[in-house]
Design a protein around this nucleic acid. Structure first.
Lengths: 306, 306
DNA sequence: TTGAAAGCGCTAACAC
DNA sequence: GTGTTAGCGCTTTCAA
């Protein structure tokens, strides 16, 4: 076909407002050019950052992303959602943020491409995870090397696997170094829960270092510490987790364990595309993305008195 | 058909891993059961919160949401993206966060359902917008009633319509009340840009009140103010915009203009569904969502010396 | 009540 | 190179 003819057709398409019918194309092709993204909420750090990264990576692969939120954390919420999504027009599914044991309950049709960001699926499903154990070790080491005798912990919700791993890594490292691991304070990822935990911590003069399972809770802890007249980092050091942008401008700027969400998103998409194309030699590949300790101003050696 | 038979079929479907082919159904039906969401990025406050709300509302309407990010703010980025999305398998499109005049350039096939969150499309396309003018008036009134002689402004990017409206509202109200509107400091929504503006403001002893076009920049301003030894709210009052959750736990907790993202998302979906069903009597309905002034601890009367 | 057939819009294969 | 046709999997209509 002559280029000129081609152009004329394109122009005619434009004028008539014609565009190919995607449903028909998908029907013929057996592919939708769309991947599903299953998560809990999209207005929180981890989900939002990962979603953004997945969207970018998908765009580079000429894939559209269809999103399905899951109403509640409770186990029953997941399976119907997964069902619905797998019955949607998608070529595969990315599951992020897995609370509880819901993931184990997810059953997919044999051969339906799925990628998960959950440690518990190692070897079962392809997964991409952050190296949370190494990160918490680094945090504990950093604080103890500064001279702190132990590190207190504000934990995430108990039904969250990432929260569990952060707690496990923290406890294990303290034990290895012969420090006492005091019972962690319960949190639920929100700054509000961090604030409550912070009030308890602020009232305890023994506390010189606090490791929070995410940055939002660290914000709450900082707030409580200020409210109760304890100085950061003079009296108490605080370290967060995730590396949210606002952490650069908290008061004081927050030392944190920064996740590489861009890489996580890119790897999730890569693994899924491999599966869709049947290009994965490995049955259940497992990518570990490192986490970086970013030292800012909320951490310092403990006060001399202590 | 007997209920028992029905159950047996359902069980067989389950066992065989059968699920209806959505592409075929969509082809037959002429509907996809999917709406498109067009935006810029999803890891920032406004986008993320609105996205989350749209997702919830869509779920309630048994609609799936397909997302397309737009690589850059620049005008050229939008039209191809919109094209791609309108060529996607969607029954309609929600466009959020419209930078520049890109929206005007968006042309859709006649009758393609679209909802926009942009003031400039009033009367042209159905739109849902926040009442930013009223909000900025409230902010200026609140600060001046506290005794401040004027209010400085850290603006958002000039190519953003919301940023422009916030600036216009602020300037107009100051004029109405006979106060001087000093040249606003430029920002780009990031805390980093707020930090830079904050350093300039902190160096000017005349400054007693600062209105920031979003909360993230307010965080940066607070940081700069602290760094340079100015007290908040003792020396300088700071007010933000959006009402992000972390604003409750900044230091000090941030007075802000809180947007009702949930309502915005719900209305966007409602208007779109109306269009898809041809139920809109009004050609280009226009919903205005109010913004609430939330007073926390970053604002107070000016210091007596001033 | 049950079954058969046509057709949605596209593309790949095949015949001209 | 150009034109025609069959069929993807579903739903709806019409016939038995």
């Amino acid at each position: 076909m002559k280029p000129a003819t081609r152009d004329r057709v394109l122009i005619a398409m434009e004028q008539l407002g014609y565009s190919p019918n995607l449903a028909a194309r998908a029907l013929r092709h057996g592919r939708y050019g769309t991947i599903g993204l299953l998560a809990h909420r999209f207005d929180r750090t981890g989900e939002a950052a990962t979603t953004d990264a997945v969207l970018r990576a998908a765009a580079e692969n000429d894939l559209t992303v269809t999103i399905l939120t899951v109403p509640s954390t409770d186990a029953d919420g997941w399976t119907p959602a997964a069902k619905r999504l797998q019955h949607q027009a998608t070529d595969g599914l990315i599951v992020i943020r897995n609370e509880l044991e819901s993931v184990k309950r997810l059953t997919f049709p044999a051969g339906f491409p799925v990628v998960v960001s959950d440690h518990r699926m190692e070897g079962v499903l392809p997964c991409v995870v952050a190296d949370e154990i190494a990160a918490t070790r680094a945090a504990v080491d950093y604080l103890m090397d500064l001279g702190h005798r132990t590190v207190h912990h504000v934990a995430g919700p108990q039904d969250s696997e990432p929260a569990r791993r952060r707690e496990i890594g923290w406890r294990a490292r303290l034990r290895e170094r012969g420090a006492i691991a005091y019972e962690p304070l319960p949190g639920d990822w929100t700054a509000e829960s961090g604030f409550r935990a912070g009030r308890t911590l602020a009232a305890n003069p023994e506390v010189t270092a606090v490791f929070c399972a995410n940055d939002e809770m660290a914000f709450g802890v900082l707030h409580a510490l200020h409210d109760m007249g304890r100085r950061v980092p003079g009296d108490v050091s605080v370290i967060g987790f995730d590396g949210i942008p606002l952490g650069v401008h908290s008061y004081p700027p927050l030392t944190t364990l920064k996740q590489d969400f861009r890489t996580i998103g890119a790897e999730l998409v890569r693994l899924l595309v491999d599966q869709i194309n049947n290009e994965n030699a490995d049955h259940a590949p497992h990518v570990i993305v490192p986490i970086e300790l970013v030292v800012r101003k909320s951490t310092a050696p403990p006060p001399p008195a202590s």
